Simulated scan of single mutants.
Amino acid sequence: HEHEHSHVPHEHHHHHEHRGLQEVIAIIDATDMSAAAKELALKIFDIIADAEAKAHAVEKNAVHFHEVGAIDSIVDIVAIAVCADSLGVENVIVPELCEGRGTVRCQHGVLSVPVPATANIMQRFGFNVRLLPVQGEFVTPTGAAAAAALMTTDELPQSFKILGIGLGAGKRQYERPSILRALLIEDNAQKKKSLNSNALQTDCICQLQSDIDDCSGELLGYTLERLLAAGALDAHYQPVFMKKSRPAWELTVICCEEDRAKLEALIFAETTTIGIRRARMERTVLPRRRDVVHTAYGDVAVKRCLLDSGERCYVEYDSAAKLAQEQGLPLQDIYLAAQLAQKNIN
Rank of each mutant, 00 (worst) to 15 (best):
S245W: 07
D203C: 13
L227V: 06
G231L: 03
D214N: 14
L251I: 02
Y237L: 12
D203W: 09
Q238R: 12
C206G: 08
L208D: 01
E218T: 06
W249I: 10
L220W: 00
K243P: 09
G217H: 06
D203R: 12
P239G: 07
Y237T: 11
Y237V: 12
Q207H: 07
C204I: 13
R246I: 10
G217A: 11
S210L: 03
A232T: 01
C215Q: 03
G231D: 02
A235S: 14
H236R: 14
E218L: 08
C255K: 00
A235M: 10
R246N: 09
H236G: 12
Y222W: 09
G231N: 05
H236W: 15
Q207E: 14
C215D: 02
C255L: 02
A230V: 08
D203V: 09
A235D: 05
I205V: 15
L208A: 04
I212E: 00
D214Q: 12
L251Q: 03
T202M: 05
A229L: 10
T202F: 03
I254R: 04
L200G: 10
L224Y: 03
D213N: 12
L228H: 02
E250T: 00
Y237S: 09
R226T: 06
Q201R: 15
T252V: 15
E218D: 13
E250S: 15
T202A: 08
G231Q: 03
D213P: 10
K243S: 12
I254M: 09
I205E: 07
L233C: 10
L224C: 06
C206E: 09
L200R: 15
V253D: 02
G221K: 09
L200E: 10
C206Q: 11
Q201W: 03
K244F: 12
K243Q: 12
T223P: 02
C206L: 11
G231C: 07
S245F: 08
A232E: 00
K244P: 07
L228R: 04
A229T: 06
R226N: 10
V253T: 04
Q207I: 13
S216N: 06
E225Q: 14
H236Q: 13
L228I: 06
